[in-house]
Design a protein around this nucleic acid. Structure first.
Lengths: 192, 192
DNA sequence: GTCTATAGGTGGATAGAC
DNA sequence: GTCTATCCACCTATAGAC
């Protein structure tokens, strides 16, 4: 019940938490209202329908995620370090028992409004594009070694990370995620 | 509206289809009733609560999946061939726009009854155990090459395959799944 | 075993007072 | 902007006739 921030933000925070832990179809306006400490009618004032809420949710998530990627790009030049920090982004989320928001929405994809679906798609495309750049740079710098195109490897890594989160949460075993992503990292890391 | 089979089976078939395409929280007894051509009360006769239905659903899925694995073991001795057929199991599912039932339930894990959760966990454990055996045999037979333990590699492959389904469905691109799993296969296949 | 009828609860959503 | 009050559709579930 944080009362210091503006309501729209508090609603989005609560909705995101619920969406990441339970899924799009498992939370209600009542759940959000209860977490924020307001009434459901107030939510409708800020987000007329659940579709609007979902759209704003993913749009904000994408934007913040993109900022994180930019920060990673600025803090180091080593591709291997960048990749580790990228994996950490997801790891931190998992430590709070949160799935990636878009990984979660991906499972609900058939029931999402078109505009929300598009946002999820864009999120994955951005991830693949960023990863492909890192992988390409890393191979050029002799840090990574892998067969095929950088984009193909990027798609494999995105799928593996999302799947690792999904399975680790089901097994209630965060360590599983760390092991899998470490092995994934090692599979392309060039031995010194 | 198949009337030839027994009702319980028809209910499970419809529920499984809905669960794999929409998720556990996105389908109702009314949806099943409509697909089967009966009333919701009839479903409650066979499966008193949704938890009972969910449990029976995963238990049957596990059993049928295990049969498929046994069949694979019987049709070939080549580890590489077995692995390909294993991936095909998931691929066929995806061609009908179906996620793996347990991958889908994994995303809904926080909202599932305890007994359903346990079934999902067992499904993943069975997958890892079977994959680990194949990977071990394949390495011994000089078909596969990978670092680390067979079990670690098995966990990576399960996560990658589940994630590949998740992302491919979100992007509405089945070809993506084929590419990713092919690259995954090639990453451990020993060149002749 | 399947039906009709219905209960009690919750879903997203709106009108209008403050 | 937030509230109370309310709407209707849908949810899971049960009782009892057939």
């Amino acid at each position: 019940m944080k009362r210091s921030e503006d309501t729209a933000t508090m609603i989005l925070d609560a909705a995101q938490h619920l969406a990441q832990t339970q899924g799009y179809n498992a939370f209600s306006y009542a759940d959000i209202a209860s977490e924020v400490g307001i009434r459901t009618a107030s939510i409708h004032y800020h987000f007329p329908g659940k579709g609007d809420l979902g759209y704003s949710l993913v749009a904000r998530y994408r934007q913040i995620f993109l900022q994180s990627l930019t920060e990673i790009d600025q803090t180091t030049n080593k591709a291997a370090q960048k990749l580790k920090k990228y994996i950490d982004l997801y790891h931190w989320s998992l430590l709070e028992d949160r799935m990636c928001l878009c990984g979660m929405l991906a499972s609900d994809i058939a029931t999402l409004p078109e505009k929300v679906r598009d946002q999820v798609k864009i999120f994955f495309d951005v991830n693949v594009a960023w990863l492909a750049t890192i992988l390409k740079d890393g191979r050029k710098a002799d840090e990574f070694i892998y067969r095929g195109t950088a984009e193909a490897q990027a798609r494999l890594m995105l799928a593996s990370i999302q799947g690792a989160m999904l399975v680790a949460r089901a097994l209630r075993n965060t360590g599983q995620f760390q092991k899998v992503t470490k092995d994934l990292f090692n599979s392309i890391k060039k031995a010194k």
